[in-house]
Design a protein around this nucleic acid. Sequence first.
DNA 1: GTCTATACAGGGATAGAC
DNA 2: GTCTATCCCTGTATAGAC
Lengths: 200, 200
Amino acid sequence: MPRPPDPARAAARREAVTAAAARLFAERGYENTSVTDLARAAGLSSGSVFYHFPDKRAVFRSLFERDLPQCRELVERSLDTDDPLESILGMVDALGAEALDPTAPGIMVELLRQVDRDPELARIVSENASVLHRGFATLLRRAIESGTVDGGLDPDEAAAWIQAVIDAAFLNAENDTDPRPMLRLIVGRFLAAPTTGKAT
Amino acid sequence: MPRPPDPARAAARREAVTAAAARLFAERGYENTSVTDLARAAGLSSGSVFYHFPDKRAVFRSLFERDLPQCRELVERSLDTDDPLESILGMVDALGAEALDPTAPGIMVELLRQVDRDPELARIVSENASVLHRGFATLLRRAIESGTVDGGLDPDEAAAWIQAVIDAAFLNAENDTDPRPMLRLIVGRFLAAPTTGKAT
DNA sequence: GTCTATACAGGGATAGAC
DNA sequence: GTCTATCCCTGTATAGAC
């Protein structure tokens, strides 16, 4: 019986391709993974991959399209706080936790490479980064206001550096040690208002 | 007159390929740059590239083979000091300066990708990283001894994180601002012995 | 929707003349 | 040493049957 159109099943197969892509792109890299490789790993034919995705780049992008909602949610949750510094460190922890995913370093590196070569991908990740940036910068302003963060820092510049250090944690995550304690320490000390000198 | 063998000229052409590779690999990525592209940019034929290099990967490796001596020199110079903390920050400055090279971010990302796929490349860069690591760790031990760096830090772990933060500067180098001031600030605060509490 | 088959292009590396 | 010509392979994407 020739299967009736089944959107649920189709979505599942699309998802299978995305999952295979996360693993294979991380292990072997984007260019060293053929669409046929993805198809085999996901249990379908290469022709079918091109039915579900317009081209190979779109498969890669699909890895990041699902991130934006989570990202917004994290920021919203974090903005609702009395202790902005602690909330910043909480965001750092949450983002650092993703570095525990064994595919994270590989995907991160591929992302850095591909983002300059696919404008649509650039749009997606820059939206993502903007959300985080605004979250960090807003919290930094509040924390500076309340005297828990060094007023000599520029909130936007500091936010960018926090994100850079988190990215570095991803790249450095080859070993399976949890980066979060050191990440928290580094960011915490970076931001801390000088204990000596001008208290409020 | 059919030129006599001229090793100097040959070395110059080899060097031209390396220079073209730095630019093109950074701009377009390793896989998206063909040997023919490199050859054209360096002003010779693709056949000649394979005369000077055994294969394409060797061209990429040539970008890093020249780094090791500079690296050793930096560490040696830095170890000869009375103020180990200042010397660490000096190393950070020197390494951060390389991020000003406009090809640095692109090459950095390619390096991260290729290092898992070329054992010979891995050998080269791990030797490089080891030299730096030992330099940082040695200076950290001395600085902890003399009370200028937080004795609660593990020297090896801290050294690894300093290197990670420097990597972060490379990734963040899309804009043309000098990363060194912030780099120094972040590392300095990361390491600083707590001013309150136990003085020696 | 999913497959098989294939068009079409491009790249790494080698051969051999000069 | 340097070139040109080319072998051989692989990969993306499409066509068309089912």
